[in-house]
Design a protein around this nucleic acid. Structure first.
Length: 595
DNA sequence: GCCGTTTTCGGCCCGACTGTTTTCAGTCG
């Protein structure tokens, strides 16, 4: 039976195909809104449908509820069948090509019968696209470039958050000392801590944007200037990553920074609230509408502030002030996804104590040369100590992870002796742990009497990823039900851009984890970031505590903590819910496998 | 398609930039 995320995908497919048909854009958006409402559903979808409570969700009415029920029961609904029958399957792929939207696709399909990426490429190369009304030679070239980028993304390859932030740090260091830059900050999905990003968005306060834009365009790693206007310049870096720099006078900085941080869905909601309060909100700020002249349409000026001559600007000096003006508590960037944060900011239930990097007192899940790590126990301990940690857990692989140098019992005992020796030399507290494989049948890769002697157990799947959903769910439920405290390591085994999460009914596993004793890991490895935010919320709602880990195979990887924290914040994790935000003794007591 | 102490109809967020248009449509975020 399809879960809520599968049903949400089907709604988005309906929306996309309706868009190609030229359907009312608000109707198209209704499907997108419905999909998001579904994804944010806290309760079981089947139960919600059975109780007739779907329409209680904001954005789902009678029509969508009916279709969602169909999709949940049968995997499809008549409208989706009709749309799939009347549009070639390649249409959805065409929508993914940059520069190509529903209108152009429809026009090309009508004029030239283009239905696939290959058709489109052939037509561009043959010079036939420029003959279609509304298309010219430049558009033809842009489409070809778009196809090339579409293909190079292969499996929808996006830039990892860690890589994006490294580039952003470098760019900020380049831009900030420039005299015409009064302030430069990161915005966009990277600021929100998204696991991967499409591009980087930077915002600058400047009284001389032309000079700043010129300096930006001269950035040494820039490959090409893609666009250049009075307030915005776009670069493509040698790595292919695209960077936008938007510039405004200092007094408009806060609202622009907020605007470009997104998400789009969050902003749509805020603008609706602004309207209700008699304002209009845009990157140019908050303006109070003059009711007497409300009917006057805005007349945008090219390349400047729109002529909101019937409205009065409300000075906004910070994001906090903007939310306050809308009657809302400040919403941290990581939460701005229209996943309930607006309602929480309104009724005051938004958590004010989201976990922060400085809250974390110990590094969990560290490998050493005993298995597949590159640093010794002592090197790892000293590196963790140098970063100010109170404790570090040494969790090398268990025997079944042969490819990773997993330890047998004899080597595990010798490792304990070494940890004891190092402990005498360092102040930081060392905990003896394991990353135990979850075997095919759900058993852990150590006998009970060994587990009882360990300080901490991370239990992870490292083999047989391709089991079907039933098998994998049974395997994990059994593993999470063992009567020891265990940390579910890198939950769904995904590797961003490389491997999908494995099929599994996550809620059932979390139920088992909650009923037995255990915690869920938020793995900070830039390619994992696993569990992902929606499942972090599901774990928290069951009272399952979290561990923010680095999964470090080198001393440098202790820096992954930043990404684990960002991911946990996206899952609304509060400081008190994170075990390694507690003092060493409290943490050690909480994670002790036995007792 | 959704939604409603101004409404069950008529709204629905807003602007930058490009390319093709000669006043604007399409795409993006």
């Amino acid at each position: 039976m399809p879960d809520k995320f599968t049903v949400a995908r089907a709604l988005r497919e309906i929306g996309a195909l309706l868009e190609v048909e030229g359907e009312n854009p608000f109707k198209v958006r209704a499907y997108e809104n419905g999909a998001r409402a579904l994804e944010g559903l806290a309760d079981d979808l089947g139960a919600t449908i059975a109780a007739g409570k779907l329409t209680e969700l904001n954005g789902i009415g009678e029509a969508l509820a009916k279709k969602i029920a169909d999709l949940h029961a049968t995997g499809s609904t008549p409208l989706l069948e009709r749309l799939r029958a009347s549009h070639p399957p390649g249409i959805l792929k065409l929508l993914q090509i940059p520069e190509l939207g529903p209108k152009k696709i429809a026009a090309l399909h009508a004029a030239l019968g283009i239905a696939t990426v290959a058709d489109l490429e052939t037509a561009c190369l043959g010079g036939r696209v420029r003959g279609v009304k509304g298309f010219g030679g430049k558009t033809e070239q842009k489409i070809l470039e778009g196809i090339r980028r579409f293909r190079s993304r292969a499996i929808d390859r996006r830039t990892l958050l860690a890589d994006a932030l490294a580039v952003a740090d470098d760019l900020l260091a380049y831009l900030r000392p420039f005299p015409a830059a009064e302030r430069v900050e990161l915005a966009g999905s990277a600021r929100r801590g998204r696991e991967t990003v499409n591009d980087l968005d930077l915002v600058a306060a400047s009284r001389d944007p032309a000079a700043l834009a010129a300096h930006f365009a001269a950035y040494p790693s820039a490959d090409e200037v893609l666009a250049r206007g009075p307030t915005k310049t776009t670069l493509r870096l040698a790595t292919g990553l695209q960077v936008d720099l938007r510039m405004v006078p200092p007094e408009d900085f806060a609202t622009l920074h907020h605007h470009l941080t997104g998400s789009k869905a969050h902003h749509v909601r805020l603008r609706g609230i602004a309207r209700e309060l008699g304002y209009t909100l845009s990157e140019w700020g908050l303006h109070r509408l003059d009711p007497a002249r409300e009917a006057t349409p805005d007349v945008p000026l090219t390349g400047g502030e729109p002529a909101l001559d019937h409205a009065r600007k409300v000075p906004i000096e910070s994001e906090e002030a903007l939310y306050a003006a809308l009657g809302l508590r400040f919403v941290p960037p990581e939460l701005r996804e229209d996943q309930g944060e607006i309602e929480a900011a309104r009724d005051g239930s938004l958590p004010g104590d989201l976990v922060r990097p400085e809250d974390i007192r110990g590094f969990v899940h560290c490998h050493t040369v005993w298995s597949d790590g590159r640093a010794t126990v002592e090197e790892m301990a000293r590196a963790a100590e140098a970063r100010g940690a109170e404790f570090v857990t040494i969790t090398d692989h268990s025997r079944a992870a042969g490819y990773a140098g997993g330890l047998d019992l004899d080597r595990l005992r010798r490792q304990w002796e070494e940890i004891d020796r190092v402990q005498e030399k360092v102040k930081i507290r060392l905990l003896k742990g394991t990353e135990a494989d979850i075997l095919e049948d759900g058993a852990l890769d150590w006998p009970d009497e060994v587990i009882e002697r360990l300080d901490v157990v991370v239990a992870s799947v490292h083999s047989r990823f391709r089991m079907d959903e039933d098998q994998m769910t049974r395997r994990l439920v059994r593993a999470m039900s063992v009567p020891f405290f265990k940390i579910w390591g890198h939950g769904l085994g995904r590797l961003l851009n490389e491997r999908e999460p494995y099929a599994c009914r996550v809620e059932e596993v979390l139920d088992a984890l909650a009923a037995s004793r255990g915690a869920a890991e938020v793995n900070g490895d830039p390619q994992r970031l696993d569990l992902e935010p929606r499942w972090i919320r599901a774990a928290r709602s069951r009272g399952v505590p979290l561990v923010l880990s680095v999964d470090a195979h080198s001393t440098g990887a202790l820096g992954y903590l930043r990404f684990a924290v960002a991911t946990a914040r996206r899952g609304w994790a509060r400081r008190g819910e994170v075990l390694n935000a507690h003092p060493a003794e409290v943490f050690a007591q909480a994670v002790r496998p036995a007792g």
